[in-house]
Design a protein around this nucleic acid. Structure first.
Lengths: 161, 161
DNA sequence: GTTATTGTTCATTTTAAATTGAACAATATT
DNA sequence: AATATTGTTCAATTTAAAATGAACAATAAC
């Protein structure tokens, strides 16, 4: 009976994290996995996740992989020596760092590359009526990008306090 | 011929913004619309967007609606008095404010509500082995939420400088 | 009052992304 | 060496989100 309560509670926490990661643009299953680990008193194995969340082995494996890359979970000791067990990292600082490093920076970097391409196109194009205007707009974009690059470390530092 | 160059350039800028808004979790069409407005020298009407982007009237209408709600475009004067014309707001400050207000804060608020529900469940549950642990975890979540609520205005202020 | 123009809404269709599950590799156990 | 266990990969499927387009309202022009 008490387990029943725990189970319901657990399910709601998992749901809570589903919504959370959706806001960050990550797959629902990643939220489920992190959520269950977050509310578990002991580390869980891939099999535990499959059984308790009712998701496929494939999803669990891929989700754990992503969470490891983000630095959001780490390995831990568990009953069965053959298996890997996982527990969550619950420090906002490190979660933010991982997310920024893995999800935000790559996008910004690729954006910067494309922006440089666009500037080149304008530079090498024959003088046209719009050239000056285009140049200004691209400069604007560059200012945005620069600001973002400065903001990220500040944000990270703040979250780490 | 010169128009040909402009057209290709325009298309690449539009693509650039597609990628950009995808990172923010907004629909591609919103990026296309904002991108075309961003690189246009004069305000455009819904019909212009439909024709130049090759999207449906429905998409254009919905996309413009979202962009207006975000404060990312505003109405402007144009040739045809019967039509509404739009131009982009290119101030990062206001774009960020709109995005935070419309997309981030609502999620945080709903999260806070759900978190309060979870705390109540734990509080009202019979003493169990896990109760203390659950309480700690939920406190952790509350600290995250609080930190986010403080970080947002700081971020906003920084972007507005 | 009838017709034309502009823009919105929303049920249906399409598209992109996530999930599944079976095949596979890697490692341990007998 | 044969068998069992654990975890990964990826083609096929499912699901959720976005785009479409036809019907509709609102307004203007005739």
């Amino acid at each position: 009976m008490e387990e029943e309560i725990d189970y319901q509670f657990e399910a709601r926490v998992v749901e809570f994290f589903c919504d959370g990661v959706r806001m960050l643009g990550l797959p629902k299953s990643v939220g489920e996995i992190y959520g269950l680990l977050f509310i578990s008193q002991s580390p869980l194995s891939l099999d535990d996740l499959v059984n308790r969340l009712g998701i496929s082995k494939g999803s669990a494996s891929q989700g754990l992989k992503m969470l490891r890359e983000l630095g959001a979970v780490k390995e831990a000791e568990g009953d069965n020596l053959r298996r890997s067990y996982f527990q969550p990292d619950v420090e906002l600082k490190r979660l933010a760092r991982g997310f920024i490093k893995e999800q935000v920076r790559p996008h910004l970097a690729s954006g910067d590359g494309k922006l440089a391409d666009l500037k080149r196109i304008v530079r090498e194009a024959p003088d046209s009526e719009g050239r000056q205007f285009y140049h200004e707009r691209l400069d604007q974009l560059e200012r945005w990008s620069k600001k973002a690059r400065v903001a990220l470390p500040l944000l990270q530092r703040f979250l780490g306090r």
